[in-house]
Amino acid sequence: MKTPPFRLHRPTTIDEAVTLAADLVKRKQGFDWVSGGTDLLANYKWHINTQPHVISLASIEELTRHDAHHIGAMVRLHELEHGPTHPLLRQAAGTIASTLIRRSATVGGNLCLDTRCFWYNQTEDWRRSIDWCHKCDCDTGADCRVIPNQNTLCVATYQGDLAPCLMVLDATIHLAGPEGVRSMSIADFYALDGMTRNVLKTGEFVTHVSTPEESNDLDGDYQKLSLRESWDFPEAGVAAAWKRTEAGLSTLRIATTACESIPRIHLEPAEAALVDWNGESTAIEIAEAIRREVKPVNNTYFPPAYRRKMLRVLTKRALKGTWM
């Protein structure tokens, strides 16, 4: 397989990267960011949304900083798995794809992972056979093949593992771009549908994520549904974090991934449950509430009805640590 030609840029500082991006924007040249390349290059080989320029973040030293509460965008998932951050992140990192992928793939790339769909993650020849897909072959006027007769919304699924874990740890994501730097709660980073995916503006990229000191007091778990222990993206994932004191459970956050176009934190069911926490039976109630909240569609390996039902089981299992 061959990617269409593109020009690779390899800035060595954040400033240089931002300047490069601003320049390409000004010249109306399309471009993508690449960090580990495991997501982008696979898509490029299938001629999915390719751009004439690619800016690599791999040579930017500042992006590799990695300590207990600061994770640079260029930190490899393999390093995260064996690194100094919260155990929940290390656990989740270890479940991603395969060891070989994790050696290249990065935290930034995983957070910005392109959404996936059976009708989208296919070769150019394949997409021609379905008369194209509107997520990638926009200028063809193609329809969405998952939910036909609408070509505005994209329902491709976000299948990253780290995002829900960072959400329950209340992490902050930091961006840099031609208009300067900005930070926000990771929960606010994801937006809208499978095409928009997140709030990144053209020319903007993720520099790092940070977790609050208070997250040290949190316990957590990540439960992932995937057919194989290696390679597979999550078909559904539930992250939970909580603080257990003598007095009982004082904090509880639950987030899900791989069920919709963006990962989602479920604030209300968790807060409601805290009011009258009763261990397993409350967990089962939350699990049911979460199952009702998410609406997967039929575009990943397992059928959506099954994924929803499994969310219930995963949530229950993720919360096991709260009573056991």
């Binding site: 397989m1 690779l8 495991t38 696979a42 060891t99 992928i101």
Partner: peptide
């Protein structure tokens, strides 16, 4: 596409998928 690992090589001693490396 990064699944089979047949293309793995060592870069500075670390295994890397050469099919997904520029």
């Amino acid at each position: 596409m990064g699944t089979c690992g047949c293309c793995a090589v060592l870069v500075d001693g670390e295994p890397v998928l050469s099919c997904l490396t520029l």
